[in-house]
C-alpha cells in the first residue's frame, strides 16, 4: 500500500543543544485522510510540524513526500510541490484586505514573476476566484476589510481560504482551533471536513476532544516520541494516552 502514503518520515529527529525535541518519529500519512497529531504541551508537535514543512531542518532522519525525498528541500519549494502549511498564530497579511490576502496566493499561478513594470490591474483576473474562495469559508462580507480588523475566528478562516487558493494536495494545519470560542470551533471544524473531501490533511491539535469527530487517524506524541496511533476509539481508551494527558494536568 506504499502508493497510498502521501507523506512519510523515517526516524525523524531534531535536537536543540542536547535537548531532543523530536526523536525517531516514523509517521505515515495516507492520501485522502485527516490525520491528527496530538499531545500535551511540550510534546514536540510544533517542532515536528516545522520539520515536515521544512521551516526547521532535522538533525537526523528523512522525509518523503509522494515518494520523493524532501529532507533537503527549501520551504518555498515544498510549498510549490503542493504541501502547504498554516500557522499556530493566525498567519494573514494584516494590512491587506481579505480579498488581497487570497489573491496573493492565487497570483502564484503566474510563477515567480518579477514584472515590476506591469500594473496590478492584471491581478483583477483573480478577483472572482478570490471572492468565490472567501464565499466558501463564509467571509464574503469581509472581502474589503483589512485582515487586521477581522475577528480572530474569521482570520483563521481567511488563512484557510488563502491556503486553499494554492489548491494544495496536502494541507498541514497548526492548531487550527487554538484560542477559539465554541461557535468558531464548530464552524472551522465543518470547514476542515468540507475541504478534506479532495485532499489530505495533517493537523496538530492540543485537545483530543476537538479532533474526535474530525480525524480518521490520530498519532499521540509525548516527549518527542510516538506514544500511540490509531483511530479515536483506540487512542482515547489507551491507558498510556490517558496517563500522559492526566499527568500534564488535563
Amino acid at each position: 500500500m506504499a502508493g497510498d502514503i502521501i507523506l512519510r518520515t523515517q526516524k525523524l529527529t531534531r535536537e536543540f543543544k542536547g535537548f531532543v525535541a523530536v526523536e525517531d518519529v516514523d509517521l505515515s500519512i495516507r492520501r485522502g485522510t485527516i490525520h491528527a497529531l496530538i499531545g500535551p504541551n511540550g510534546a514536540g508537535k510544533t517542532t515536528c510540524f516545522n520539520l515536515l514543512t521544512k521551516f526547521l531542518a532535522p538533525t537526523r532522519g528523512q522525509i518523503f513526500y509522494k515518494d520523493r525525498d524532501i529532507t533537503a528541500a527549501q520551504p518555498a519549494a515544498v510549498a510549490r510541490m503542493g504541501l502547504v502549511r498554516s500557522f499556530q498564530i493566525s498567519a494573514v497579511f494584516p494590512h491587506l484586505t481579505a480579498l488581497e490576502n487570497v489573491r496573493v496566493a492565487l497570483q502564484r499561478e503566474r510563477g515567480e514573476s518579477f514584472d515590476f513594470w506591469r500594473s496590478r490591474r492584471v491581478l483583477a483576473q483573480w478577483n472572482d476566484r478570490a471572492a468565490a474562495l472567501l464565499d466558501e469559508v463564509g467571509l464574503t462580507e469581509f472581502a474589503q476589510t483589512p485582515a487586521v480588523n477581522m475577528p480572530y475566528g474569521r482570520k483563521r478562516a481567511l488563512e484557510i481560504a488563502t491556503t486553499l487558493a494554492l489548491e494544495p494536495e496536502m494541507m498541514l494545519l497548526d492548531e487550527p482551533m487554538a484560542g477559539m470560542g465554541h461557535e468558531d470551533i464548530d464552524r472551522v471544524a465543518a470547514l476542515i471536513k468540507k475541504i478534506a473531501a479532495q485532499r489530505t490533511i495533517l493537523m496538530v491539535e492540543h485537545n483530543l476532544s476537538v479532533v474526535a469527530n474530525l480525524s480518521d487517524r490520530i498519532t499521540v506524541l509525548t516527549r518527542g516520541r510516538i506514544l500511540a496511533e490509531g483511530d479515536y476509539a483506540t487512542v482515547s481508551s489507551d491507558p498510556r494516552v490517558q496517563q500522559a494527558y492526566m499527568g500534564s494536568g488535563h
Binding site: R85, S86, R120
Partner: peptide, 25 residues
C-alpha cells in the same frame, strides 16, 4: 502597484506566510 509589489507587501506583512505560500522571499 505591480504584481511584484503585491508580493513585496505580503513579505513585509508576514514573511513566514509568504514562504509557506511558495514564494522565494
Amino acid at each position: 502597484h505591480s504584481p511584484f509589489g503585491e508580493v513585496l507587501k505580503a513579505i513585509r506583512e508576514n514573511e513566514a506566510r509568504a514562504v509557506s505560500l511558495g514564494y522565494s522571499v
